[in-house]
Write a protein that binds this DNA or RNA. Structure first.
Length: 427
RNA sequence: GGAGAGGUGGCAGAGUGGUCGAAUGCACUCGCUUGGAAAGCGAGCAGACUGUUAAAGGUCUCGGGAGUUCGAAUCUCCCCCUCUCCGCCA
């Protein structure tokens, strides 16, 4: 949520920044108009209430309260009527302002490149040339099914399309990756969390997932609980409605979690393979920082994600998302993309975002610089470190050999207990 | 699932209709004291909005919402949450 104060004080600045988004800046004038009316109404109500409170106080201080109450009743009743009248427009004005602001995306950072779509994203660095193969590399779904370690047919039987079952060495590879990712995060100073995988509506709203733009999430309407689409939600909201001591910042959290997404807007996209499923595994990285540190933190967070790919020997690159591609919550986003030789393109494997104070304001995550200082909003950042399924895809495709077997990246061998996958197992 | 208890400031915990944004204790901040510390003493210490150069001042908040009343932390109703006991269970 944008800062209404900023909108009041400097609507021109908000207008300029918001205009860079496809959503545009039309809301600015409307919000300013509504807010001006709202504040006028509030001011008059408060003045009238002050008058009424003075009379009420007079009663409580009177020698004969009953008599004084009788005497002042008509005046108080008159004030009550005026309070009701002056306050009548307030709920509707607040509702309108909230409804507008709730769906306005975060303001982009100045460093975000302009662009109309993914083609305008800027490649910042490339880890190295993609490896050359002495044969035609296969896509991971062919490799995985031939080895018997990925089973789409039985997953469809169990749950439908966009699900996969891992078997034997595939399952162990997935589990080993989770362990590897978590260990590396801990080594880099992250605190591991086992969060809830279901969250309530308020939590989901507070991290910006519940907007009119959001694809529907899996939910239990009976209890009004939502399956998390990413551990970003519980990790970011962990300190919601709290005021943190400034010296505790930055806070760095990591968590493994399953992620559930309906993918309602992705019909027909990535229908084969493990790329886009209703259920997948991910290790998430989240930072809470002081405002001045958040953009340095974004660089650091992105390096953390990249380092995992480097250690696994997976070719990758980092791109800065352009103005049209940065998501609702973020002021700036770097995507880390891994090379998939079986499909001959780069594919997002981690999306690292600085959400500045946007989620913090929704979730009310604040900090105090010093003991008596006024609370300020923290900045929140998140990124995958990494998406487990997509890493598994990258390993299958990059480490495939001509006979269809898969070498296990050296760094991962201690975590999975074998160095080649030639059959489903026992491996 | 059954029965009961309870939600007050960072924590503990008073407060059952007015002078209560709220006693007291702990924690915390500053000062005094001290060679230094502890103890002791003094002062401060909730958040939001409004207002102002800054302030003063004002409004709201005692889980959330609605109501009774001139006046609600306190009374009534609804909702949410937590805890205890019993049952069941990974």
């Amino acid at each position: 949520m944008l800062d209404l104060m900023l909108l009041r004080r400097d609507p021109e600045r908000v207008r300029r920044a918001a205009a860079r988004r496809p959503a545009g800046a039309d809301f600015v004038d409307e919000v300013v108009r509504l807010d001006t009316k709202l504040r006028a109404a509030i001011t008059s109500v408060e003045q009238l209430k002050a008058e009424k409170n003075a009379l009420t106080q007079a009663i409580s201080k009177a020698a004969d309260r009953t008599a004084e109450a009788q005497r002042l009743k008509p005046q108080i009743a008159a004030l009550d009527a005026r309070i009701v009248e002056a306050g009548a427009p307030i709920p509707e004005l607040e509702r309108q302002i909230d409804a507008i602001l709730a769906d306005v995306p975060n303001l982009l950072d100045d460093s975000v490149p302009d662009g109309a779509g993914p083609d305008n994203n800027v490649v910042l660095r490339v880890s190295g040339p993609p490896p050359a193969f002495g044969f035609a590399p296969k896509p991971h779904w062919e490799l995985g099914e031939a080895l018997g370690i990925v089973d789409f047919e039985r997953a469809a039987k169990l749950a439908g399309s966009r699900f996969a079952v891992l078997r034997g060495a595939g399952a162990r590879l997935s589990r080993g990756l989770i362990d590897f990712f978590l260990n590396r995060a801990i080594e880099r100073g992250y605190t591991e969390i086992v969060p809830t995988y279901l969250v309530n509506r308020k939590t989901m709203w507070s991290t910006g997932q519940l907007t009119k733009f959001a694809d529907a999430m899996f939910a239990d309407t009976d209890s009004d609980l939502f399956l998390i689409p990413t551990a970003e939600v519980p990790l970011t909201a962990l300190h919601g409605d709290e005021i943190l001591p400034g010296e505790n910042l930055p806070l760095k959290y990591t968590a493994y979690s399953p992620c559930f997404r309906k993918e309602a807007g992705a019909a027909g996209k990535d229908t084969r393979g493990l790329i886009r499923l209703h259920q997948f595994e991910k290790v998430e990285l989240v930072w809470l920082t002081e405002p001045a540190q958040s953009f340095d933190a974004l660089e650091s967070l992105t390096r953390d994600a990249e380092s995992l790919l480097s250690e696994l020997g997976l070719p990758h690159r980092v791109v800065a998302l352009c103005s049209a591609d940065v998501g609702f919550n973020a002021a700036k986003t770097y995507d880390v993309e891994v090379w998939l030789p079986g499909q001959n393109h780069y594919r997002e494997i981690s999306s690292c975002s600085n959400c500045t104070d946007f989620q913090a304001r929704r979730a009310q995550i604040r900090f105090r610089r010093e003991a008596k200082a006024k609370p300020e909003m923290v900045h929140t950042l998140n990124g995958s470190g990494l998406a487990v399924g997509r890493t598994l895809v990258a390993i299958l495709e990059n480490y495939q050999q001509e006979d269809g077997s898969i070498r296990v990246p050296e760094a991962l061998v201690p975590f999975v207990g074998f160095d080649v996958i030639a059959s489903p197992g026992p491996a």
